[in-house]
Design a protein around this nucleic acid. Structure first.
Length: 581
RNA sequence: GCGCCCGUAGCUCAGGUGGAUAGAGCAGCGGAUUUCUAAUCCGCAGGUCGCAGGUUCAAGUCCUGCCGGGCGUACCA
């Protein structure tokens, strides 16, 4: 590591001041302003007071005491209130750059996760309707984090939890059945808390036209293991209708669940989301995991009875009040199921679990953490990331979304109108815990207002340029340190300086769980590339052949970096971009 | 009331573990095109970083208190 080398050198220079490794934590950072060099340390200012010296003076003496190979550090300068700035030699930057292409290079060095398994759970929307647009942000974040964790050497696992048990599913069955009965001419009252979305009406309509075999056929669409339990009920809607009410509702619910999950899964697929596991709540009930979790909590002394209900002593674990886990009627709460689910996740052998939750669940964090602690799960095992709300604007006005009333923007319509790439990119330009205004008009406008196009454009430009070079008979060959060393201009070295940051950008984005650092970075890369590309009077393909090749090699490196980052955020990097008229 | 998030340019937002002159995109104004695709580039303008204290050699960043906005505060999920 370069930093280690510089730190070692600085420590040597510090010895004569009686300062040793254990006395000081030497920080090296990249200055905001490129004119301040490539790396900088505030060492002299930190030590100034302790040694009773003026920082600037001290910096001078430290700088005079360090001795680095010319092939690595080109210069050491003192600036400002006492910064020591290092400027890296071009040859060293080239070495770092080429290292990005090496399969055993920098991108392998950052794989420090030791293949430990991490579970990342996101979206986990209720299976009561099509995915709405709120899930899209979670999808973009979750999937990118999964890829980021893989990039730093973890074995990460995308998971989707399906609440296919309990009251809401019953309500779903009741709602669909009511629609069906209405369509068959019966006068029935629609359930008070029922789902009013039009999709259920349409589903009921289809059900009237479908016979037994069509329904069974639809069910076979689920071929993978996770979905084996999602099956159509036997018979057809007429059969279900004739059953006793309870059983009838169950059949309608089962059918609705199957349809809705197929929609949700297809929407995820369109958005580029791949879940290794769809975990069904119903399985927790069937496998008695809920009772077992309850038993274990009991054994740990974390429960008590009051007013006929069973309570979890959440206050013992920092929550503001105790929480019910089994209601007075004997029905487990959602909380208990969730405890059982997460405990099973722990038992499945994950080193760590990361959950993405909406802001409406933040009050839930403390009790969940408490429950895990009560069960004896290590304290930091479960990590909750809160994704703040998204406000969608259309015509400058926020769109009101209410599931009850059935008026909300679906994720599918977002993909249709804006495109998955644009949506993903825009979601990933904000940090997770800030509210996001998503201007649909702006996103729909396929124009320069859209930063994602700038990045795609840079990539397409490079592809075209390489293609053009081949047409003109320019032999590019492999990228070498010799050719890159010939780059003559500052814009080019600015670009090089940005490209070699790739590994640390990936590491910091992954560790901070902040994928938005990727979009910021890739935008800067595209921007610096365009600056390099746009210089008039210097066409890349014209002039000195060696320099042309050097510049084309820089283009190849840029393209490589763009592709790595775009892959991480799940955005396509096309070779050709249709020019807008 | 209590808890969490947010408050930075006209708008939307960046500002890794405190650092040098607070940045970008869009919108506005002025330039660059015999194009290696202008969805680009260059320049100008735009700020008491919500307010007030505090810690520090150094605060947009950390601490405290206010103000303003959002969300939550169920034997719902």
């Amino acid at each position: 590591m370069l930093e280690d080398l510089l730190v070692k050198g600085l420590l040597v220079a510090l010895e004569k001041f009686g300062i040793f490794e254990e006395d000081v934590d030497i920080l090296l950072e990249k200055p905001r302003d490129r004119s301040h060099g490539d790396l900088s340390t505030n060492l002299a200012m930190v030590l100034g007071k302790r040694l009773g010296r003026k920082p600037r003076e001290l910096a001078g003496e430290i700088a005079a005491g360090v001795d680095f190979p010319k092939a690595i550090v080109e210069s050491v300068e003192i600036a400002g209130p006492g910064f020591i700035n290092f400027r890296l030699a071009h040859s060293f930057q080239v070495k770092l750059l080429l290292n990005l292409l090496d399969p055993d290079g920098a991108l392998k060095d950052i794989r420090t996760g030791g293949n430990k398994r991490i579970n990342v759970e996101f979206i986990s929307a209720n299976p009561t309707g099509p995915l709405n647009v709120v899930s899209a942000r979670a999808g973009a974040f979750g999937m990118t984090l999964v890829r980021l964790l893989d990039a730093i050497g973890y074995d990460s696992h995308a998971e989707y939890y399906v609440n296919d048990a309990g009251r809401q599913v019953k309500m779903l069955g009741l709602s669909l059945r009511a629609h069906y009965l209405q369509l068959s001419g019966e006068t029935v009252e629609f359930p008070e808390d029922g789902y009013h979305g039009r999709y259920l009406e349409i589903m009921a309509q289809e059900l009237m036209e479908q016979d037994t075999s069509a329904i069974a056929k639809a069910a076979t669409a689920f071929d993978d293991e996770s979905f084996q339990r999602v099956q159509a009920p036997p018979g057809n809607a007429e059969d279900w209708r004739k059953l006793p009410e309870d059983e009838s509702v169950r059949n309608f619910a089962k059918f609705a669940l199957m349809k809705i999950l197929s929609w949700q899964r297809e929407t995820c697929r369109r958005f580029g989301l791949r879940f290794e596991t769809w975990y069904f709540e119903s399985e927790l009930h069937e496998s008695k995991r809920i009772e077992r979790a309850l038993d274990r909590l009991e054994k740990m002394g974390a429960l008590y009875q009051e007013d006929g209900a069973t309570w979890f002593r959440a206050t013992d674990f920092g929550d503001e009040k105790d929480r019910v886990v089994v209601r007075a009627e004997g029905i487990p709460t959602y909380f208990l199921a969730d405890i059982a689910y997460h405990y099973h996740k722990f038992q499945r052998g994950f080193e760590r679990a990361i959950d993405f939750w909406g802001p409406d669940h933040h009050g839930y964090i403390q009790r969940m953490a408490g429950a895990m602690e009560a069960l004896g799960v290590p304290k930091d095992w479960l990590e909750i990331q809160i994704l703040q709300q998204v406000t969608f604007l259309e015509g400058g006005r926020p769109i009101k979304m209410s599931k009850r009333a059935g008026q909300f923007v679906t994720m599918d319509s977002l993909i249709d109108e804006v495109g998955a790439d644009v949506a993903k990119y825009l979601f990933l330009t904000r940090k997770p815990n800030s509210h996001l205004d998503f201007d649909l008009d702006l996103a729909k406008a396929q124009s320069n207002e859209n930063p994602v196009f700038k990045v795609k454009y840079a990539h397409a430009r490079i592809c075209k340029l390489i293609h053009r070079a081949a047409e003109e008979g320019i032999e590019i060959g492999d990228v070498t340190d010799e050719s890159l060393g010939r780059l003559p201009d500052e814009v080019e070295w600015n670009l090089v300086g940005e490209l070699i940051r790739l590994p640390q950008v990936i590491v910091s984005a992954a560790n901070a769980r902040e994928p938005h650092r990727l979009t910021g970075y890739v935008f800067d890369v595209a921007s610096l590339f365009n600056q390099f590309y746009q210089r008039k009077d210097r066409k890349i393909l014209k002039g000195d052949r060696d320099i042309t090749v050097a510049r084309l090699h820089l283009c190849l490196m840029t393209r490589h970096v763009l592709r790595v980052v775009l892959d991480l955020i799940g955005v396509d990097a096309p070779e050709v971009l249709e020019v807008k008229v």
